[in-house]
């Protein structure tokens, strides 16, 4: 009989944050979405780290994207101190750059997670990544819109085997519903995990509800072994 070890699944979590110029736009004197997210994402990580069971089962990385992709936080165990840098200001929204960058990170990150479990009495199995993609605009770089056939191949490599990442696409005011739906994944035969702000939902409140839903989603998804996400307050699910 072959020896069999118990398995512990570890979930790589990626938060992808749009830092294009429109994210710094502040309607009617309220705080801009980017400022709110910059403040709330470290709080989110701290809150996740406070959960002892989750901290043993999840690692996190934060990536900003505008004119290019920027690693704000490399893949880090939630049991370790997590440092998140402030992003550089971006101008445009380069989907090709960020999806290519993410695809390039997933393999090395998985190997780092696996290596961390060496020598334990169990096998560390890296689960499919959970990706939260926050944006407020359409794919736009080098002063032109990026066609789906430019960025979709990278998205498809990320969600296809063997990576099989699950993506939730969260669109703030100004995002394009069709693009969000194309980026997101969902249950087979079910609805996509794509959400867009309803009219009038802006600022701190919307950012807060997005962060709250992401935190809850991470906790539920790690337990369920599948992305589970509810509709944030001030948003609706994008159909089709």
């Amino acid at each position: 009989m072959t020896t069999m070890l118990s398995e512990r699944k570890t979930y790589p979590i990626y938060i992808l944050l749009d830092v294009s110029a429109s994210m710094r736009h502040s309607p009617s004197g309220r705080r801009a979405p980017l400022a709110a997210f910059n403040e709330m994402i470290p709080d989110l990580v701290m809150s996740l780290s406070d959960s002892r069971s989750l901290a043993k089962a999840a690692w996190i990385s934060v990536i900003a994207f505008g004119d290019e992709a920027e690693l704000l936080c490399p893949m880090t165990a939630l049991t370790d101190p997590v440092h998140i840098r402030s992003p550089r200001d971006g101008r445009q929204t380069d989907y090709v750059a960020v999806l290519r960058f993410l695809h390039g990170r997933i393999g090395p990150d998985a190997r780092a997670i696996e290596a961390s479990g060496t020598g334990q009495s169990y096998r560390t199995k890296v689960a499919p990544p959970l990706v939260f993609f926050i944006t407020d605009g359409a794919p736009y770089a080098r002063d032109r819109y990026q066609r789906p056939d430019e960025w979709m191949p990278y998205r498809d490599r990320i969600v296809g085997a063997p990576v099989s990442a699950r993506i939730a696409a969260i669109g703030l005011t100004g995002a394009h519903p069709g693009t969000l739906s194309a980026i997101a994944t969902g249950r087979p035969g079910g609805r996509q995990n794509a959400f867009i702000a309803t009219s009038g939902a802006t600022g701190d409140g919307l950012a807060g509800s997005v962060i709250s839903v992401i935190e809850r989603s991470i906790k539920l998804s790690v337990q369920a072994g599948e992305m589970v996400i509810e509709v944030p307050d001030g948003m609706r699910r994008v159909d089709g």
Binding site: T3, L5, S6
Partner: peptide, 12 residues
């Protein structure tokens, strides 16, 4: 049962 195995698991 996921914490069981045939050799090294502390639970087993």
């Amino acid at each position: 049962a996921g914490a069981l195995d045939t050799s090294a698991s502390p639970l087993a």
